[in-house]
Design a protein around this nucleic acid. Sequence first.
DNA 1: TCCTAAATAGTAATAATTACTAATTGTAAA
DNA 2: TTTACAATTAGTAATTATTACTATTTAGGA
Lengths: 141, 141
Amino acid sequence: MINAAITLLRKKGLKPTQQRLAIYQALMTSRDHPHAQKIYRKVRKKHVTISLNTVYNTLEAFKRAGLIGSVKVLHDESARYDPTVDPHNHIVCMKCKKVTDLFEKKLLRIPTPSEIGGEFKIMGYRVEFFGYCRVCAGASP
Amino acid sequence: MINAAITLLRKKGLKPTQQRLAIYQALMTSRDHPHAQKIYRKVRKKHVTISLNTVYNTLEAFKRAGLIGSVKVLHDESARYDPTVDPHNHIVCMKCKKVTDLFEKKLLRIPTPSEIGGEFKIMGYRVEFFGYCRVCAGASP
DNA sequence: TCCTAAATAGTAATAATTACTAATTGTAAA
DNA sequence: TTTACAATTAGTAATTATTACTATTTAGGA
Ligand SMILES: [Mn+2]
Ligand SMILES: [Mn+2]
Ligand SMILES: [Zn+2]
Ligand SMILES: [Zn+2]
């Protein structure tokens, strides 16, 4: 609901502008970790004059507020945005670049390698699988 | 030794030019996963007229031949090159972006999440730790 | 030595992201 | 409700890593 989004943005100190609400909706209803460009095209259907820069600014503001996440995967240059902030990992198709969530709990409890010793203060880690999705595995290389 | 490099490049069907040998030496004697730019600056001390484009072309050719690897980490835009091709993982300093090897064997045997089911043909995975190196952990945020 | 495909240097083009700036807008106080 | 002003936006320019293009050079076999 739109009012919930307004309240949420206000709570984070972000003015709930039309643009921000549209971008928030666009990302939250995505299951494919879209690029900024894709969100831009989606939002522009209603907000014809929105600028790509605003999309970037808004997504970064959402990220700083902890409302969304972002993913950078191998085999794909540009940044993807993630409506899910709960800890999870990803698997990427090396051909079509589709990024799929992995909520497997075992991946969230990997012990810190003793090899690291006292050399690093660990803040986190990520696991990224790569391979071919069902569609691409069946197609020609 | 230089003759070993010449033999190796020939075996891979790559002409052992002066430029390629210099780039190969520069990377092999690096422990810091350098960017193309850094290799370029290093090699240019001897090969004054080498072009950055040649550095990129050469590194990509080496990669295709399986002589080197590359790494793209979070918190750092550009590609890094890796003299080590044996399977291993990395830890990245979120401040100074230093990339350190992790050869811990446990990280090489993570089971494929059942969650993936038959949806993906897995080709591999990587684990990437992030945090702060000893130098940056002691400094101001 | 000569020939040819491969490699190189120099430069232009591309693409994602960030920076800049004048105009617009949300909101809180008057 | 109006006003004032900082935050936000649109439009555009700048930046940066990487790739593309092309004329020239070079390695290595005939
Ligand atoms: Mn995700
Ligand atoms: Mn490495
Ligand atoms: Zn695919
Ligand atoms: Zn550091």
